[in-house]
Design a protein around this nucleic acid. Structure first.
Lengths: 193, 193
DNA sequence: GTCTATATCTAGATAGAC
DNA sequence: GTCTATCTAGATATAGAC
């Protein structure tokens, strides 16, 4: 018989899951699914390797849960631009900042992993494909076109330009040292005249 | 007693090694060292998994040999610009093309792998560090400065600008679909006014 | 609820048959 | 010289003790 009642147990349980998730995201984002060993995650979380399996049945399950979270964040980051004030280029700059920012970066890196790698679970692939990057960019295309009218952005196919731009950002995220003190204004030259 | 004489054996041996290397580069570049299983390489090369070990004592050894080759190619690609004709921006454009080109890309990707990953053999890291990217860029800085004088390139710290530029290229190389039909002229806007 | 010990499974590497 | 079968190490996942 445990000393704790159901409510308290529930709380401990949730706390531990969060603790494991945070540790796992940190390691997965850097080392990928297969490059990450369960003992690395356990060590990062400060618990024993065996205990991880009381909270997640498998490495894959843990990975998939993280991908789910990360995708939600990503979608949120893109859609939040709609309600944002400021010029079109200011909006894109904000999004860029968010993507490259240390606190959000792990999530974006994880998404990248899934898009690039072949050895992630099918389930993870499916989650990403529900919101392909191209569909997220659709939302941005709308105000990007406005920016083109005012001459703020360069001429050309908006979808293609933005796809290139976000490929560049995505690529940079994968390079550990590249995002240290990046000059976002220069990156924006890809889009601006 | 073999039916072949030493010379013939030597030929077969070299042919096989090349065959294995080509297969391995293809797989390693895409999937990384740990993501690549020896049976994948064997399958790609059309031989049995066991046979690979008659030509390379270990997966690491094979990987290191490939890194060596790739690094030579990379250094060659950068240094060849000195003897090249054309304007500064034309030279950088050529180099960019070479890096993103399908035939050379595997080598550049492999170098990236080594720079990013933690689980490659120390030996591989050492090979790369003999010619760090920053030292390769040194050579380009010289004629980049000329380009700045003529107004061909934008103002600013040459090393930093070029570092960003090649980080962008490197990052794009890691994204499987990003390099399909990339507009290099737009990428050059990062450097040009 | 957490840990340590152990079973199982996968992949690198070797040995033996042809 | 090449293949198949096997050994072995390391990592995932489970079981049992506290």
């Amino acid at each position: 018989m445990s000393r704790f009642n159901d409510d308290q147990l529930e709380k401990i349980h949730e706390k531990r899951r969060k603790q494991i998730k945070e540790a796992a995201l940190k390691v997965f984002a850097r080392r990928g699914l297969i490059g990450t060993k369960m003992n690395m995650i356990a060590k990062e979380a400060g618990i024993s390797q065996g205990l991880s399996y009381r909270y997640y049945h498998s490495k894959d399950e843990l990975f998939i849960e993280l991908v789910k979270d990360a995708m939600e964040e990503t979608v949120e980051a893109f859609t939040s631009l709609e309600n944002m004030t400021g010029s079109p280029s200011e909006k894109i700059k904000q999004l860029t900042k968010k993507m490259l920012d240390a606190s959000n970066r792990y999530s974006f890196m994880l998404i990248q992993q899934v898009q690039i790698s072949d050895e992630v679970p099918d389930k993870a692939k499916e989650i990403i494909q529900q919101y392909p990057i191209s569909s997220l960019i659709e939302q941005i295309i709308l105000f990007f076109k406005n920016g083109q009218k005012t001459g703020e952005f360069r001429k050309g196919n908006p979808a293609k330009l933005l796809m290139l731009y976000f490929s560049v950002i995505s690529g940079l995220m994968l390079l550990p040292n590249a995002t240290e003190d990046i000059d976002i204004d220069i990156l924006m030259k890809l889009l601006c005249e």
